[in-house]
């Protein structure tokens, strides 16, 4: 009982720290994550950590549990065992508080199609209770970075191309100043210019003391921007590479990836 009360007090202190912007160094901590669909165990004990200031790549071929891990991380799917913490806050204990800490861009651009781009961004920013000054400055910054004009954003999203929808989703995921950016296949449908801008933004974002959790099938993107990479296979982390410690492996990522699944290039 006393132990539980002590834990509760510590969690409250941590929450106060996080709310006041004093974030711990570990952005994401996943421990022993297990998830099954019926009798089929998809995640068999995923454990990983993502630190502030780094871009973490999460690689894997189709059907190995990559998207399920992200869905668990952003609270879209329940998991049976293990724990997930975002900046020290357990996502099950503090489901609302952690939402303000991350921005999530799904693999398929999901928006309110009947809204204009501006209305959608206004909705997302206002739901996070942003003040006018921060909203204005973030919006202006993101507009220029993603190359969307006022006229584009004044039109209904249903009239947008796939790439434009993807850009608006990326803008929405950053509009509320999150400290963790969770990106699921962010480059699908983006033109070369925006692709370059995005990779540059990801580096800047991490260099400013934030963290990025990135999944993509685009190995070039992963080896260009990531600091560490986890390759997931059969529901567990099969390989973990730190490019800072092993810089030569950056160029060799494709071969390592294939080897993780028993293939040789």
């Amino acid at each position: 009982m006393a132990e539980e009360r002590k834990e509760g007090l510590m969690a409250d202190e941590l929450l106060e720290q996080v709310v006041s912007g004093n974030l711990p160094s570990t952005a994401v901590k996943i421990e022993g994550l297990k998830k099954s669909y019926g009798n089929r165990l998809v995640l068999k004990g995923i454990s990983l950590e993502v630190n502030r200031g780094e871009v973490f790549g999460f690689l894997g071929r189709n059907g190995v549990g990559k998207s399920t891990t992200i869905d668990c991380l952003v609270g879209l799917k329940e998991y049976q065992e293990g724990s997930i913490e975002i900046y020290g806050l357990d996502i099950k204990k503090y489901p609302l508080e952690v939402k303000s800490l991350y921005g999530y861009s799904p693999s398929e651009p999901l928006t309110y199609e009947l809204m204009s781009g501006y209305e959608f961004l206004q909705f997302v920013a206002s739901s996070f209770d942003m003040d006018q000054v921060s909203f204005d400055s973030n919006l202006t910054f993101l507009e220029s970075r993603f190359g969307l004009s006022e006229e584009d954003l004044g039109r209904r999203i249903e009239e947008y191309s796939h790439g434009m929808k993807q850009k608006v989703c990326l803008m929405a995921s950053l509009i509320h100043n999150p400290s963790l950016w969770i990106l699921d296949e962010p480059t699908v449908g983006l033109d070369v210019m925006v692709y370059e801008t995005l990779t540059k933004m990801m580096r800047e974002y991490a260099n400013n003391g934030n963290a990025i959790f990135l999944t993509s099938h685009n190995i070039d993107l992963i080896q260009d921007v990531c600091d560490r990479v986890a390759i997931v296979n059969d529901g567990v982390i099969a390989t973990l590479i730190d490019f800072k410690k092993e810089p030569l492996k950056r160029k060799d990522l494709k071969r390592i990836f294939f080897r993780a699944y028993g293939y040789e290039l």
Partner: peptide
Amino acid sequence: KGRLYLRQIP
């Protein structure tokens, strides 16, 4: 498609 945001906003 916006149903995702029901789960994502605080």
